[in-house]
């Protein structure tokens, strides 16, 4: 990930990009009611991708099993709503805590060893969870999935409607909130120290950065955010199923992030929009061989060079972001 190229042009996108996303989202709410469910998926996948970007783009941790935290969020939120309380926000908090705890517990395993052991461990943790969810069918419904998740109205005011309007607005609000928080996080001394670790771990240690503690912290935070994304999925679809924990899910989210670009958070959002739209369209054309197209995309993107492709995809957007630039950048 090094080389004498100039800094990624969008790496320092202004905070105003949030307002652009907000504007686009609001327009979508007004103009595209038909697509609420699809856009809801986009928002959820975007949040999941943002959580992965926190560890992959900012801390350099490659994970083959980020679905573990997403899936745990799905089941936690579903079970919480079913057996304890139907309040959506409370459910999200519980889902985030559960996933973050798993992240904290497994962080120990990813701190040590090499890229290879990290691949194995992340994949292994997700497989263990999948196996657990499958075996504990009295709790999770096993392969049939968990049905009958009924949510209380958001804030006691907005009931989840059939058209999916409340669901979309709810997911969108959470996404924007988390994006804002993540933007603060990555610019903070903590976030900057992660980027230092990503670029050169040896030097990071040598200037007094406690590398392991920082990596464990971001892994935990990232897991929590993934848990929230999973929670949103369970709450807005009233359903939890094993595919939330599947390897396919982990691979999909890698692709999402790669489409949009890593290391600047908005890549996850842009990737999610493109990915979900493509999924929607390709599934309609060839429902069975979605996996083939995913594979092809991954291969082509890597061969073409990830950064180049991202630039190409984003070029129509750059004028928008160019408009929004300005207040970013450190004090002169």
């Amino acid at each position: 990930m090094s080389g004498p190229q100039p800094a990624f042009p969008l790496a320092r996108v202004s905070r105003r990009a949030e307002w652009i996303i907000l504007a686009v989202a609001l327009v979508s709410v007004l103009l595209l009611p038909r697509y609420y469910p699809v856009m809801n998926q986009m928002a959820i996948i975007a949040l999941f991708a943002v959580s992965l970007d926190l560890i992959l783009g900012y801390a350099g941790i490659v994970s083959l099993g980020h679905a573990a935290f997403f899936g745990l969020g799905v089941y936690t939120a579903a079970l919480f709503a079913k057996h304890v309380h139907g309040d959506p926000f409370l459910g999200l908090v519980i889902a985030a805590i559960a996933a973050a705890l798993l992240g904290l517990a497994t962080a120990v395993l990813i701190l040590r060893g090499t890229d290879l052991t990290r691949l194995m461990v992340t994949l292994g943790v997700a497989l263990i969870l999948l196996e657990l969810a499958n075996k504990l069918d009295w709790l999770t419904g096993g392969a049939d999935g968990l049905q009958g998740v009924v949510m209380a109205p958001v804030l006691g005011l907005f009931t989840f409607d059939m058209a999916g309007r409340t669901a979309y607005l709810y997911s969108l609000t959470i996404l924007l909130l988390m994006l804002f928080l993540a933007r603060r996080l990555v610019a903070s001394p903590f976030g900057m120290s992660l980027q230092a670790i990503r670029d050169n771990r040896l030097r990071a240690e040598a200037i007094g950065i406690p590398v392991n503690a920082r990596l464990a912290a971001i892994y935990t935070i990232s897991a929590g955010v993934a848990g929230i994304a999973g929670g949103l999925l369970a709450q807005t679809t009233s359903f939890a199923s094993l595919d939330a924990l599947d390897f396919q899910r982990s691979a999909d989210i890698l692709l999402v992030l790669v489409i949009g670009g890593t290391g600047y958070l908005f890549g996850g959002v842009i990737g999610a929009v493109i990915f979900t739209a493509m999924h929607h369209w390709l599934s309609a054309v060839t429902p069975q061989y979605w996996q083939f197209w995913i594979g092809l995309m991954l291969v082509v993107i890597v061969l073409a060079g990830r950064e180049r492709l991202v630039r190409a995809i984003l070029s129509p957007f750059t004028w928008l972001l160019g408009l929004a630039r300005g207040r970013s950048g450190p004090a002169k």
Binding site: R184, F190, M192, P330
Partner: peptide, 12 residues
């Protein structure tokens, strides 16, 4: 201040 999570580094 390395564990600061809120205020951006460049605004310190």
């Amino acid at each position: 201040r390395g564990f600061g999570l809120w205020r951006p580094l460049e605004r310190d």
